[in-house]
Amino acid sequence: MEHYHMNLTLKVWRQKNAKMKGNLETYKVKDISSEMSFLEMFDVLNEQLIIEGKEPIAFDHDCREGICGMCSMYINGQAHGPWQNNTTCQLHMRAFKDGDTIVVEPWRSSAFPVLKDLVVDRSSFDRIIQAGGYISVNTGNAVDANAMPIDKKDADNAFMAAACIGCGACVATCKNGSAMLFVGAKVSQLSLLPQGEPERESRVLNMVAQMDKEGFGNCTNTYACEAECPKGISIANIARLNSEFLIAGLSNEEN
C-alpha cells in the first residue's frame, strides 16, 4: 500500500478527573504518516500539546502489539476504531485519509468509570476474575503436558476463549454495557478443561454474582460484542456461560 501523509482534525474527550464533567476538545495534527499506528499519532499530538504548554491527553497503553488490552479508545463511534479483530495500538493511520475528522472517546460504562481523559478504571474486570477466574492447584514441578488427555475440540475451544485480553471493548460496545462476552470467555477457558472441573460450579456462580454487583448491564443478544472483539471471541462463549449458570444455579443446594 502506498505511503502518504495526512492532516487531521481530532475531537478528543477531555476530563480532568472522575468527578468533573468532560467535553470534546478539537485539535489539529499535520503530516501524519499512513504508516503510523493510532497511538503514535496520539504521541505526536501529545508532543505538540506539551510544546504549546498544554496538558497532554491521558490514555492507556502498554504492549502496543495487540496483546495486553490496555489501549481502550472509542474511535469514530466504534471500539478500537474501524478495523475488525483489531486493537487501537494495531490500528494504523492508513485507515484514515487526509482531511478526516476523528472522534476519540473513553469506554463508557458505569462499571468502567473515567479516571482522566481517555483512561478508565477497569478493575471491575479484575474483581470478576478474583471471584472465580482461576484454578486452585499446588505449585511445584510442571505436570507433564500429556499426562491428562483432553479432547482436541475442548482444548481448541478453551484456547480460543483464552485469547480474551480483557480489553473491555465488548462492554464499551454493548448498548447494555454487558460484560457477558468477557465473563463467558473467562468461564469457558477453565470450565472446558479437566483442571477447571473441581471449581466449575462455584466459579460460574461467583463470577456472575460479581459481574452483577459491578453494575454491568444485562445481555440482550445483539451480538455487537462479538463483532467488535479484537480477539474474535465467539458468542458461543456467552451461550456456554448461560448453560453453565443455568445448570449450576438450579442444581446447587446451598442457600
Binding site: G77, E105, S109, A111, K175, N176, G177, S178, G217, T220
Partner: peptide, 12 residues
C-alpha cells in the same frame, strides 16, 4: 437497568 449501565452516552 440496561440504560443505567451507561450513564454518559457516547457523543458519536
Amino acid at each position: 437497568q440496561n440504560n443505567k449501565a451507561r450513564p454518559v452516552a457516547y457523543q458519536y
